[in-house]
């Protein structure tokens, strides 16, 4: 059981980083990104590419950051011409195009994916699980600090002004294309790091890890935890991840068929989003207005 808890907590840390990344975009800058999973995908496939080429882990991280940075800039570039709702649809479509391409190309391992990546701290057995959890928790904490620094600065005020009154922001001389590009680069880097850690934890990379349902899982974490509250979205990530992990136990307890697990997870995500948007749209920990002194 403790191994299981360590596993769930490890995954929660990685999803916490993704929730922080989405929060920077959607929560603070108003960038409604439905293609976040593709940025994460750059991370996992960066790691896989390095594995196939026989490069060290650090080269995989570099490849992941470069790919995610380019994709993030491409997303940002599209945002110049599209209003936020159309941009959201465009990001979702691009993420799907990338997933389908990855599934059908041979150099990505196709539908079988790529396996055999090095397990982080694999030689520390039996303490490797804890060591990984420690590393992931550290990465999550560092990401949290970075996000807090960003949003509690003058740049953060510009992000918030752009989120709510883009026309006013432009009139006051803010370069909203520049802000969008910077925010996309930073959040793409966070998602890429999360992806590399994830790939070297599961030791397997495949197109199933790029499904858009996972983007919406991250959305649910942000909405449940509290849009534009960094602490809130980490809480949301932990709650949602644990809820996901305990669905199989509920199935056993109630004696339900195996199909129940996947369906119940989708219901948890959709239901969580719907319930909070209707009843508590500010989430468990609401944004603190005027917290910056």
């Amino acid at each position: 059981m403790s191994d299981f808890l360590i596993h769930v907590a490890s995954i929660a840390c990685i999803y916490g980083m993704l929730a922080l990344s989405l929060n920077l975009q959607m929560g603070f800058t108003g960038l409604v990104n439905f293609g976040l999973i593709a940025l994460f995908g750059c991370g996992i496939y960066g790691a896989a590419l390095a594995h196939v080429m026989g490069w060290p882990l650090i080269a995989g991280l570099a490849a992941a950051l470069v790919m995610a940075g380019l994709l993030g800039l491409f997303f940002a570039r599209l945002g110049r011409r599209l209003s936020s709702d159309y941009w959201g649809i465009a990001t979702l479509s691009i993420a799907e195009v990338i997933r389908i391409t990855v599934m059908n190309e041979s150099w990505t391992g196709g539908a079988q994916g790529i396996s055999g990546l090095t397990l982080l701290f694999g030689d520390l057995r039996p303490w490797d699980g804890l060591a990984r959890l420690g590393l992931f928790a550290l990465a999550l904490f560092a990401t949290y600090l970075l996000c807090e620094k960003l949003v509690r600065s003058r740049f953060g005020l510009a992000m918030k002004l752009m989120r709510e009154e883009p026309q006013l922001a432009r009139a006051l001389g803010h370069d909203i294309n520049g802000i969008r590009a910077r925010v996309m680069l930073i959040s793409a880097a966070i998602a890429a790091v999360a992806g590399v850690l994830y790939a070297h934890y599961l030791t397997f990379v495949g197109p199933d890890q790029l499904v858009s349902a996972d983007t919406f899982l991250i959305w649910s974490m942000v909405i449940v935890g509290g849009i534009a509250n960094n602490r809130g979205v980490v809480v949301g990530a932990v709650l949602m991840q644990f809820a996901m992990a305990f669905v199989p136990f509920a199935k056993d307890l109630l004696g339900l068929p195996t199909d129940f697990v996947a369906a119940a997870r989708l219901i948890l995500v959709g239901g969580g989003i719907l319930l909070f948007l209707l009843l508590k749209p500010q989430g468990l920990l609401p944004e603190r207005v005027g917290a910056g002194k």
Partner: peptide, 28 residues
């Protein structure tokens, strides 16, 4: 006017010249 920014924050945000990424290295 923004719903989730105070009057003081909005007036501060009127100065775009210092709202750079580097500003994140200092407290607001």
């Amino acid at each position: 006017m923004p719903r989730r920014m105070t009057v003081r924050e909005v007036v501060q945000a009127g100065d775009a010249t210092t709202a750079t990424l580097a500003s994140a290295t200092r407290p607001l």
